[in-house]
Simulated assay, not measured.
Amino acid sequence: MDYDALKTQSSYCTLVNKSDNSKYVCYSHTKAGTFNIGLTNASEVWSKDFTEETLAEHGKNDALKSAEDYISKIRSTCGNGSASVTVQEDGALLQLGVSPGSVSMTLPRLSDPEGRAELRDLLFRMANSLADADAAGGPSSVSPGKSQFRRNTGFEPRRQQTGPTVVVKKRLPGDSLINPGSRKKKPATGVAFDDND
């Protein structure tokens, strides 16, 4: 495994746990020659470092041979909603996919000062990756007809539409604005009385 090539490669995705709709940021990166997989809900952090040997040992049963395979598996399962988290007393069980072909790993909970330091580092890594992506696009990537402020959805889960779609009827001329089902009343034209009676 080429850790030097992975030094610039970090992966971030949002994971929505279907059991309780809680949100997590799942991330992976290299630090000090180890491959790290982590998970946070912005208040607690669970993280595990893998060396080449421990990553190969863990991947024997899962058919994942390299850090790139793990990054790809994390991105795909977070993207299609098949990743889940079970928080335990001293860690979190990260389940990537549904059987068969699922990968599970237990990530130990980081202590308070270590967890805060990891959250701070994660925040700055994410900000640097966004800045690098913007710099790579440069100012010429913005066309005059489009907004400069593109919404980056790389860190958000894909939202699935739930519930029925409401169709809005077009208001016809003469329909009441206050009571849309009724028509406006026409003004009274008056009554002609004969004085000959």
Rank of each mutant, 00 (worst) to 15 (best):
L6P: 00
K7I: 05
K7H: 07
T8P: 01
Q9L: 12
Y12N: 07
C13R: 05
T14F: 00
L15G: 01
V16I: 15
V16L: 04
N17D: 12
N17L: 01
K18D: 11
S19H: 06
S22H: 08
K23C: 01
C26Y: 00
S28N: 07
F35R: 01
N36K: 14
I37T: 11
G38H: 02
L39N: 08
N41V: 08
N41M: 09
N41C: 13
A42D: 15
V45L: 03
W46V: 02
D49V: 02
D49H: 10
E52Y: 02
T54F: 02
T54D: 01
A56E: 09
H58P: 00
G59K: 07
D62V: 11
D62W: 10
A63P: 00
L64K: 07
L64G: 03
S66N: 12
S66H: 12
A67Y: 04
E68H: 06
S72E: 14
K73T: 14
K73N: 09
I74C: 07
I74G: 02
I74Y: 02
R75V: 13
S76W: 05
T77H: 04
N80L: 03
A83I: 09
S84A: 15
V85S: 03
T86L: 12
Q88N: 14
E89F: 07
L94K: 08
L94N: 10
Q95D: 12
Q95S: 15
L96D: 07
L96C: 15
G97Q: 08
G97M: 10
V98R: 13
V98I: 09
P100N: 14
P100M: 13
P100H: 14
V103S: 10
S104N: 13
S104A: 14
S104K: 13
L107K: 09
P108K: 08
P108N: 09
R109A: 14
R109W: 00
R109C: 07
R109N: 04
L110N: 01
P113H: 02
G115D: 01
A117M: 09
L119V: 03
L119C: 02
R120F: 12
R125N: 05
N128W: 03
L130E: 11
D134Q: 13
D134C: 11
A135L: 10
G137V: 03
G137Y: 02
G137D: 10
G137H: 09
G138L: 03
P139Y: 06
P139N: 11
V142M: 05
P144L: 05
P144H: 06
G145Y: 04
S147D: 14
S147M: 02
F149N: 08
R150H: 06
R150W: 01
N152K: 00
N152L: 05
G154W: 04
F155M: 12
E156I: 05
E156Y: 09
Q160H: 14
G163E: 08
G163M: 10
P164D: 12
T165Q: 13
V167A: 10
K169D: 11
R171C: 04
P173T: 08
S176R: 09
L177H: 11
I178K: 15
R183K: 14
K184D: 01
K185P: 00
K185D: 01
K185N: 04
A188M: 01
A188R: 08
T189A: 08
T189W: 01
G190N: 04
G190K: 05
D194K: 12
D195T: 13
D195K: 14
N196A: 13
N196S: 15
